[in-house]
Design a protein around this nucleic acid. Structure first.
Lengths: 159, 159
DNA sequence: CTTGGTGCAAAAGGTTTGCAATCGC
DNA sequence: GCGATTGCAAACCTTTTGCACCAAG
């Protein structure tokens, strides 16, 4: 935990940015909720508990900064808000998401199925892959008993 | 073309909706630009050429309706706008997107690599898959000569 | 008539920006 | 003191909604 904060501090100063108290509070919230895929608003509310004076704009600016430095990832599941997650140092290309259409929860899965697929895409379509997004939309194990007609969930809000 | 309009008309009336002139104009624009992944604004501007009196809200309502009836798909590549594409009758689970981080163009590729992967996910994570999204982010063949440092494109606007 | 559909303008919701105040060398 | 950073409020942009009006059975 502390090492990770320190490491991020170094990444920031390498680009001439400071780890201000607001930025540190934001980073810590992100670290403490690493598997939650928080939205900016979520982060804001959590940071406020520790640093009540912080403004929403600062949170947005911090998230943007961390994203630019590739410390965190922006995610978009089409439900209207951007979410953020830490970038795994190496496993970047090997983790995907399970988005529950019923409760909106995002679970994470890890695997490296896409390696061979990416090679084919690069070759066959002359497309230089930098990153990918693979998300499965469906019903999570927590909701499966509550959903009678899954088809109903398809077209609606989510992209 | 005409058959497809007719077919959509039937799908609408099956749910007690009419194919009004505005809806028909919208559908035709979608059909005529089937591989372009248009945004609502794009559709609006194109429809206006044929039916200048149409309102943006009607376009949104029509797109929402078509999406609810699962005639079209909403897509979101994290660049701030929702895009729309026709739902292939059967190949639904077998097409993916190549999103160019430089020019924003979306190309489509078809394949069925994900079948076995989906089976594993359903089993291993007890997650009932309804749909998926697989998008490769990178540099398309049209842009590859203009981009010197692809890494620069990673964190920025796009999720 | 009556119901569904439309256009317009206003509202909503998430995100960004301008600017004056503030912080930390 | 000076440039970076912050908080606030206003602006922005896409999408949704309220409402009066229109159109077709």
């Amino acid at each position: 935990m502390e090492e990770r904060v320190k490491q991020i501090k170094q990444q920031l100063s390498a680009h001439n940015y400071k780890l201000t108290p607001q930025r540190e509070a934001t980073v810590r919230v992100l670290l403490e909720n690493e598997q939650d895929h928080l939205s900016a608003e979520d982060v804001y509310l959590l940071v406020k508990e520790k640093a009540p004076e912080i403004g929403l704009a600062t949170v947005y600016r911090t998230l943007e900064l961390l994203s630019d430095l590739q410390i965190i990832h922006k995610l978009n599941f089409g439900d209207g808000v951007t979410r953020y997650e830490f970038r795994a140092e190496d496993a970047e290309h090997h983790h995907h998401h399970l988005f529950c259409l019923h409760c909106g929860t995002v679970d994470e899965i890890t695997d490296d199925w896409l390696g061979p697929i990416e090679q084919r895409v690069e070759k066959e379509f002359d497309f230089q892959i930098i990153d990918h997004r693979l998300t499965f939309h469906g019903i999570c194990h927590r909701c499966k008993d509550q959903v009678k007609d899954p088809k109903k969930l398809v077209g609606s809000k989510v992209t």
